[in-house]
Write a protein that binds this DNA or RNA. Structure first.
Lengths: 136, 136
DNA sequence: ATCACTGTATTATTCTCTTAATACAGTGAT
DNA sequence: ATCACTGTATTAAGAGAATAATACAGTGAT
């Protein structure tokens, strides 16, 4: 058989992990925001084109376009009509976004645990335990 | 005017908090699971009817029915065809679910924080700080 | 037997997201 | 000027979720 053994068509490492349980354009926005606040894209960087990114994410260009439009509405990227899209150079905004995302994660977590009936102290203890577990 | 002043039609305190960003039947399942693991509904309890709960949640009966069906598929509730639905009496299953939900919350949290670039130790420190902040 | 209550099933309609296939206008290098 | 590249806009189609309006069958109290 011709297709036995190690596949020769190596996928271009799709890191998008898109699922169908939430709107795709939202998931794309989240991924891009993460890439911005973690420095994968630096302030002022040119982003790949809509078509390129859509291809990489295996998504319709319209969907990628929508994600971009929303990000632009939030001020994280700006457009030069015919030359491309760029990451904002407002580093303060980026730092604030990162802090906000961390605070949101923390408060979502505390809310979840409290809904389950765990106090702040218990939650802290459980998290500490989980981290210890990991190290083994 | 007849409708001035304090509204006389007091809403029955809707605790469902349903949003449109995710399928409603999923959110209903989450809410019911929470009510089960936290003892709002005890093992063996009879649940309100599909129509009643649908009314309370301001949702179509079909949607509530779907949420129930899924919960039943997972074994958390069982049906007596014409007399109603009941919470499972398998307390082990309920306890396991609660533990699993806590572990999931913890691992989601750690994943989020690590994606933002925070180590386990940093995350622990930030959570501790957040809890201190709250007490004031 | 009647009646009100259960869960369940069916059909049609609406809405949002997604895909698809194009088209257009501006830019910059050749 | 030409050509490949940008973002953008439009129209059509499909899938999934949700609503709406019914209908049916079994149960249990009256």
């Amino acid at each position: 058989m011709t297709l036995e053994g190690t596949p020769n068509t190596k996928q271009p490492e799709n890191e998008w992990h898109l699922t169908s349980d939430r709107p795709v354009f939202i998931q794309i926005m989240e991924k891009l925001k993460l890439d911005i606040v973690t420095g994968v894209y630096a302030p002022g960087d040119k982003l790949p084109s809509v078509r390129d990114l859509a291809g990489e994410a295996a998504v319709n260009p319209n969907t990628m376009q929508r994600a971009f439009s929303e990000l632009e509405r939030e001020g994280l990227v700006y457009t030069q009509r015919t030359s491309g899209r760029f990451i904002t150079e407002d580093t303060t905004m980026i730092d604030q976004l990162k802090e906000q995302m961390a605070l949101d994660a923390i408060s979502r977590f505390l809310k979840s645990m409290r809904q389950l009936g765990f106090s702040g102290e218990e939650t802290l203890r459980l998290l500490t335990e989980a981290l210890k577990e990991e190290k083994q």
